[in-house]
């Protein structure tokens, strides 16, 4: 059993990782940090740089949590990927970061977070960044 957290180098993503580390400590479970970018362009802001990932892993270590990193790319939708990983690693919890969005923003761009919330079989913890 482990905790799967979707990480992007944004305030929401950082908040999600923090919460995931706390949860992993509480449940005494391993942590799986997933950073996956959308295929199709050479550069994406959702790709985490090495320093970010190092920092995240260090944080987990300090908290006494065993963390593993999964990096890669997905072709169409991150939802499928994170749910597949949750299935594969028998996750007890999925943690995702939520951006604050206006109603119009949600309508036009859609929301991966919304899809994960609605489709996941496992419990989902949605975390917002501090104001």
């Amino acid at each position: 059993m482990s905790i799967v957290v979707g990480y992007v180098p944004t305030p929401a993503g950082e908040a999600a990782v923090q919460a995931a580390i706390v949860e992993a400590g509480l449940r005494d479970e391993d942590l799986l940090v997933v950073n996956s970018a959308r295929e199709g362009s050479l550069v994406e802001s959702t790709v985490a740089a090495d320093e970010d990932l190092d920092r995240v892993l260090a944080q987990a270590e300090r908290a006494g949590v065993r963390a593993e990193l999964v990096r890669g790319t997905h072709r169409d939708d991150f939802t499928d990927e994170i749910l597949d990983l949750a299935e594969k690693h028998d996750a007890s919890l999925i943690v995702i970061g939520l951006r604050r969005r206006s109603t119009v923003g949600k309508f036009i761009m859609g929301s991966v977070a919304q899809r994960i919330l609605l489709q996941a079989e496992h419990p989902v913890l949605a975390v917002k960044p501090p104001r």
Partner: peptide, 15 residues
């Protein structure tokens, strides 16, 4: 199936 990533557990890239 198409959405699956090829993520592999990764230590560090440049070490």
């Amino acid at each position: 199936m198409d959405g699956s990533s090829n993520g592999k557990p990764d230590g560090r890239a440049d070490g």
